[in-house]
Design a protein around this nucleic acid. Structure first.
Lengths: 331, 331
DNA sequence: AAATGAAATGAAAACGTTTACATTGACGGT
DNA sequence: ACCGTCAATGTAAACGTTTTCATTTCATTT
């Protein structure tokens, strides 16, 4: 069944070198012999052995994708878009999830040293010393998808967390809101950090007073958004609008408010970040920031392939992907 | 940087065969030489070249995963769980998404003939002639994740659509509902088909009358659920409860009902299927069927690895994963 | 007719590892 | 002392492809 170039060579009465050349569109082979070989290849149902090819070429046509130990809709889209671009350029996508048995550092080391992949994309919400150290080996090229483009001297594709957050506050101010609260995400999370900073800087710019109890900490989960809001409610002095650092917490926030009979957005408005599917259909539908996941995946893959193929000059490239404000009924 | 067994062999004054044996825990090597080699390997920062190894062994430690051209939360979980099991057994996961440029059949052919993977998992909502034909090559082992275990003589992991659907109706009957409508999914979709069949058979068993206009067709999207419901409403004779073949349509259904001022569940109740994240937080929260995605992924990977490693006897194995009824406020 | 050069092809090495088979040396039984 | 056995190690082939370098062929120029 599985035929090799050797068999084709025999049947065609040429050397394997010629077959190899004919099949790889090498111009140094006569049209007539190429035709003959191609015909035979089809007849013999030839399929190149990709492992052998990668081995011989001493390079891999696979790209690694290292995922953190969580799984949400975001990743499904990222994987899809990365694989789409990878395919376009003749690469396969090797997905490596982190989980209880495999740390991100272990994954990085595997990608760096196994020869399995030509390069990899690391999707990480934060940058630790461990990770930075593992990356410093620099054996194969890589690209980061992360919340902050300034985490170091890396090629990174990132959502424009800071500016989006800033603009969201501007939007709120434009709508007349003056008392704004914020539920932040996990401290070590880059996205969370920049969203908070964008919020804080915008408040400063507009000289908005932000009571300290309007600033809450969450963990990006719905439950944490709910808790943070309940805690805020105890002070009997609510902000006029709450900006949650992601939609999940925003929805938790809404739940808490509704449970106390507080009308959204009439009494307290709520806005989120991410534009997850849920946001459109939660009650009330969420005003939020839409992230172009597809574009992030495409860009990351493109950049990685660029690095894998040409020996790109040392300079790293940082791409900040803009977002879109989606206004709905929660504000 | 990247050292080879050859270099280790040189330094250790042994042959490369011995090094290879020592590194692969072959018992035919003296404890003392093994120690020496392992030490040197560490010193030289040796990492096996996995491509070379796969090539030499004439087998791959990669598993393919073919995904359809959609991306929802379901896939992120499936990928995660498959990769977890794969890792446990020393395999990598090669994800291949279908999209505008790459059909599922093309993906199957690649997996079958490239030598890249030792086997693959095909995640498909339906079985076409094209797909069946591509699978018939049977070059490497594969496992299906699909809605129907009886689509053919395949190893398949499947959700218990039929029984779950049947039980859901039983549950409704037990709660006193007698007039039940159904919004079905796409006709060619196996999950949709079996859910509809489970519904129909249960209705028959309980001798429930089902008006033909209580039977609607949808496409698994929220919008289609909404439309189907609006159409149903025109007859001015609504069922007491609507069973939508998935949660997305169920939510669309709720939206339609709410838009007409119909109270859920007091006037018309709604139930769904899947237990997507949204369901818990939609308004009202949805009664639905929870699918154990992790288990499906684990089982599929386990079975595939079994087939890849031992030459499993011809008999195919079909696993039907049970579900769980989740009762919430929509019914 | 000889020389030159280009185009097409072939021969063989190389990639890093595994593995079948061969070799060595030590030991125990006769 | 000889033979056989066994454990440890070595030798070399093999995997399928690419690629460098050498060779052949043939047309063109002198």
């Amino acid at each position: 069944m599985a035929s090799t170039i050797k068999q084709i060579a025999q049947k065609a009465n040429v050397s394997i070198a010629t077959v190899s050349r004919a099949l790889s569109d090498n111009p140094k082979v006569q049209e007539v012999t190429r035709k003959k070989i191609l015909k035979l290849a089809k007849e013999l149902n030839y399929n190149p052995n990709i492992i052998a090819r990668n081995f011989a070429k001493r390079k891999s046509n696979m790209l690694g994708l290292i995922l953190p130990d969580i799984s949400d809709e975001f990743f499904a889209e990222i994987i899809h878009s990365i694989d789409e671009t990878a395919y376009e350029f003749g690469y396969f996508t090797l997905v490596v999830s982190s989980h209880k048995n495999r740390s991100m550092v272990e994954s990085i080391n595997t990608m760096m040293h196994s020869g399995l992949v030509g390069g990899f994309i690391l999707l990480t919400p934060f940058m630790s010393n461990d990770i930075a150290h593992a990356l410093s080996t620099n054996t194969v090229p890589y690209v980061l998808i992360s919340g902050d483009s300034e985490i170091g001297d890396y090629d990174v594709i990132t959502v424009d967390n800071y500016k989006s957050s800033f603009k969201l506050v501007e939007h709120l101010v434009a709508k007349g809101y003056k008392k704004i609260g914020h539920i932040a995400g996990p401290e070590e999370n880059n996205d969370a950090f920049l969203r908070k900073k964008g919020f804080a800087d915008a408040c400063k710019k507009f000289k908005l007073e932000v009571k300290d109890y309007w600033l809450a900490k969450g963990t990006f989960t719905m439950a944490s958004g709910e808790q943070a809001t309940l805690k805020m409610l105890k002070h009997n002095d609510m902000p006029r609008v709450i900006f949650a650092a992601n939609d999940m917490m925003a929805i938790g926030c809404c739940n808490a408010l509704k449970s106390k009979g507080i009308k959204i957005p009439e009494e307290v408005a709520v806005v989120g970040f991410d534009d997850i599917i849920l946001s459109e259909y939660s009650n009330p539908s969420l005003t939020t920031i839409k992230v172009d996941t597809d574009r992030i995946g495409n860009l990351a893959a493109q950049r990685l392939i660029e690095k894998v193929q040409k020996d790109v000059n040392g300079k790293v490239k940082k791409v900040v992907v803009p977002t879109e404000l989606v206004t709905r009924n929660s504000c």
